[in-house]
Amino acid sequence: MRSDNRHEFLRGMAHGIPISLGYLSVSFGFGILAFKLGLSAFTASVISASNLTSAGQAIGVKVIAAGGTLLEMVLVQLVINMRYSLMALSLSQKLHPSFTTGHRLACSYGITDEIFAVCSGQPKLITPAYMYGMILIAAAGWITGTALGGVAGEILPDSVSDAMKIVLYSMFIAIVVPPARKDRRVLAVVIAAAALSTLFRYVLTFVSEGFAVIICAAAAAAFGAALFPHEEEKEAET
C-alpha cells in the first residue's frame, strides 16, 4: 500500500510537469503585472500560493490596486472562479474510495483548469497521492514564476516587462479561441461578452472593472444558456 502511494505520487508529479512549465511562464507575467500595480514580489507570491488561479488573481490585484471594496472582491472571485465548482463537482464523481474527507479538503486547493483537465482525462479513479503529486509540482511552478516575475519587474527594462504583461491575456485567448472556432454557440457567447465589455469600457465608464466583468460574463452566459442550452456530455470539458 505504501509503495502504491509512492508510485501514485510520482505518477501525479510526472503528469504535472507540463502544467508546471506552463504555469512558470504565465505566472511570470502575473508577477510583473502585480509589480506594475505596486505590489511587492513577496505579496504577489503569497497571492499565488494562496489562490492558485490565473484569472481570479489577475482581476484580484486590479481590485486591490484600485482600492475596491471587499464585497467587490468577493463577487469578482465568485463569478470568475465559479467554473471551479463545476470542475470540482465533476471530479468528485471519479475519486478513489481512499479519498477521505480530509484528503478532499486538502486537494480542493489544487483544482485548476489544467489539473482538472489532466485528472478527468485519466482512465483510472483518482487517488489522493496522485493529486498531491500533481498539485505540488504545479503549485511550485506557479509560485516560483510569480516570485521571479515580481523580481524581474524591478530589473527588466520596461520594453521587456511591458511586453510580458500580455502573457496572461494571450493565454486567455488560447483557451477561448479553439472551442469558439469549433462551436458556434460558444462563439456567440464570446462575441456577446466582448461587445458588452467594450460597451462598459467606453460608454458605461462609471462601473468599476471588476463589476463590469461580472455583469458582462453573467449576461453573455445567460444569453447563451437561454438561446442555446448545452448538452450534458460537453459539461466535463469546461
Binding site: 482581476i59 491575456y169 494571450s170 472551442p179 457567447v189 461578452a193 466583468v213 452566459a221 459539461e235 469546461t238
Partner: peptide
C-alpha cells in the same frame, strides 16, 4: 448547467477584450 458551461468563456473574453 448551460450557464456554467458558458461562464468560463464569457469571463475570459470580458476580461481580455478590450483590456488586452
Amino acid at each position: 448547467r448551460s450557464f456554467l458551461y458558458y461562464i468560463p468563456y464569457a469571463v475570459l473574453t470580458a476580461m481580455t477584450i478590450p483590456a488586452i
